[in-house]
Design a protein around this nucleic acid. Structure first.
Ligand SMILES: [Mn+2]
Ligand SMILES: [Mn+2]
Ligand SMILES: [Mn+2]
Ligand SMILES: [Mn+2]
Lengths: 217, 217
DNA sequence: ATTTAAATTTAGACAAATCTAAAAATATGT
DNA sequence: ACATATTTTTAGATTTGTCTAAATTTAAAT
């Protein structure tokens, strides 16, 4: 698999997670920041290689083989992100771009030993689960803060948007993975919320609340 | 610079180190394991980009800019090799292939922090000097064991051939960097040598002796 | 059920990196 | 100096991954 092919597999995996139906050419073009015609070309090649199911005009989905490959790339991406944060002191908003490159390095042994060096982490710096060597992906029972019932308590376990802008905002407001979150109030008008984060009260917009994953306790 | 372009720059650098005259198309094709016609094509592109000097039929050499780029890639390669050996417990004969991939990862910050994590090493696992951030390359005063005068003593500081086969041979015979070497005898007929390595006497063929670097003491 | 709009695919082109086969330039040997 | 061998370059083709513009198919709206 080339770098580009691996990136397509990853994109199809992410777009298909959740929804059961096939991924559209346009959606894939959006995700890959490319043109639909280029996507069609690539999908064809991937179908030839037996890593995707594809029928003209009917969208695309991963085969068993394709899914295994995608999970392997995602595993590498997330392990490298952990490495960058834990061993090289990068901030969690700086690691994604570098991991996008490192995820394509080909060496089973390398990734196994990296896993070991890091102590077999289960989650990456953004709270996303790290696929195991055999390709299983723990789902976890997290939910978005914006979907939590009033007065419920939980632990912040992940982010949906992992853009640098969002992550920097969280840093600035002392919101980090592992912190306790209590939902005190919900504003009907704009869907914003009042919360306590580790006992610090604050007001968060819907934009924020709908990008923070919480695990109920 | 693409991966391929970086690999060409590195190859030109290595072929040119020592000799002052330009590198021939054929030599470069040999090093890159490709065809001379492909080399001509690539050299043209590199000349366009101002990283090599090139006149038809007259061979190729690096410009100042090209030399800087080559040294930067070599720095990355060697730092990653140190990482693989020191942090991931790879043997010195297993790291080259992986470093060939890692050397192309683009991030100044990454390599700076890796350097720091490793304690700013000066040599890679094969005894080759690591170029500094500003592009200087300590030469060192090592020489080949086969060139040492009779009865001289030194420390084994590097290998010329860093193929897995050669390195495994050294492992098997307990020859490692840092070991003391004393040249006891030279056989005129086949240029083989009798040496003591850390007090263990042994007989080494010219093939071996001409691929081991020693620093006189 | 048509018409219109949106999504998707085809056709044709391009740059990067490579190849084979043939031509041109340089080096070597007598 | 001239013929021969070697090296190097050109010409033309291929693969990958992308693009634009045009054609086709599917979906939505009247
Ligand atoms: Mn990421
Ligand atoms: Mn992540
Ligand atoms: Mn190496
Ligand atoms: Mn090395």
């Amino acid at each position: 698999m080339t770098h580009s092919e691996e990136n397509y597999l990853k994109a199809i995996f992410h777009l298909n997670k959740g929804g059961a139906k096939a991924v559209s050419t346009n959606a894939l073009a959006g995700q890959m920041d490319t043109k639909p015609s280029s996507v069609t070309d690539m999908i064809r090649r991937l179908a030839e290689k037996g890593v995707v199911h594809y029928k003209k005009y009917q969208g695309v989905s991963l085969t068993e083989k394709g899914s295994r490959l995608a999970l392997s790339v995602i595993r590498k991406h997330r392990l490298w992100e952990v490495f960058l944060v834990e061993k090289l002191s990068f901030n969690w908003d700086e690691v994604h771009e570098i991991a996008e490159q490192l995820e394509h390095i080909k060496s089973e042994q390398l990734i196994d030993r990296l896993d070991e060096l890091l102590g077999f982490p289960q989650f990456d710096p953004h709270g996303d689960p790290i696929p195991t060597k055999d390709g299983s992906l723990p789902s976890g029972d997290k939910q978005l803060l914006s979907n939590m019932p009033l007065h419920s308590k939980g632990i912040c376990v992940g982010v949906k948007d992992s853009s640098s802008a969002f992550l920097k905002f969280l840093d600035k407001n002392n919101i980090a993975l592992g912190h306790r979150i209590e939902l005190l109030e919900k504003e009907e008008f704009d869907n914003s919320v009042f919360v306590k984060v580790n006992d610090a009260p604050m007001h968060l917009s819907y934009q924020i609340a709908s990008n923070l994953y919480v695990k109920k306790i």
